[in-house]
């Protein structure tokens, strides 16, 4: 798994639960790494063991942890870059949903060896969509769920999200758009202000 993914999990766990908890999780997972390098690649088992360690230590399900991770990636001020890059996907939440199909290619343009899930958006009845998620490893759908929830907030849209389960290596989310302009949403400027 790409170091960027492991590093985000690390940042999320360490910042949400504290350094001590992070160290305990790492020790429990027995991965022999104290901190991940975002630009290196790690064997996929490392991520799995890390998640299992976190679930055991925090007494939360893997799904809950991953969903919170997704929210964290978008809403945490230190992760601004992720939120901004996602916002480039479109002017409205619906535009953004459609841009998810490009997510993998967009990510690869920036980081050629970063493998992200393949996403496919299908319109359903009314203002609803289903999102099919295919990834090298199953069980990462909840991350998308958390991200979409936070992105809807960012756009000021009111949505209902459901994880419909997995079948044949494909996870499916249902997204129901209740109100596209429910709240004002956060501003997005194409050019980041000088930091």
């Amino acid at each position: 798994m790409h170091g960027l993914i492991n590093r985000s999990i690390e940042a999320f766990l360490a910042e949400t639960y504290g350094l001590e908890a992070w160290r305990a999780i790492v020790a429990r997972a027995g991965i022999g790494v104290e901190s991940f390098e975002p630009m290196l690649t790690y064997p996929p088992e490392v991520t799995e063991r890390l998640l299992a360690g976190a679930a055991a230590h925090l007494d939360r399900s893997r799904e809950q942890i991953l969903e919170d991770l997704g929210t964290y990636l978008v809403s945490e001020p230190r992760m601004q870059a992720v939120r901004r890059l996602l916002r480039f996907g479109g002017e409205s939440f619906v535009d953004f949903l459609h841009s998810l199909e490009e997510l993998r290619d967009r990510a690869r343009l920036a980081v050629p060896d970063l493998e992200l899930p393949e996403l496919e958006l299908h319109p359903a009845a009314g203002m609803a969509y289903t999102l099919d998620i295919r990834f090298e490893r199953p069980g990462f759908g909840p991350v998308l769920q958390g991200m979409l929830r936070a992105m809807a907030d960012d756009y000021g849209a009111l949505v209902m999200l459901d994880h419909l389960g997995a079948a044949g290596g494909c996870e499916r989310l249902r997204i129901e758009l209740l109100d596209a302009a429910f709240a004002e949403g956060r501003r997005f400027e194409l050019c980041a202000r000088a930091r």
């Binding site: 960027l4 975002p38 870059a81 901004r84 890059l85 967009r106 343009l109 920036a110 050019c191």
Partner: peptide, 21 residues
């Protein structure tokens, strides 16, 4: 143009990470 801006920003973020590494 928007994709160009996206790429410029993504590149900057990645470059920062590489520099840190």
């Amino acid at each position: 143009t928007v994709e160009l801006l996206y790429l410029a920003e993504a590149n900057r973020a990645v470059l920062t990470e590489s520099r840190n590494l």
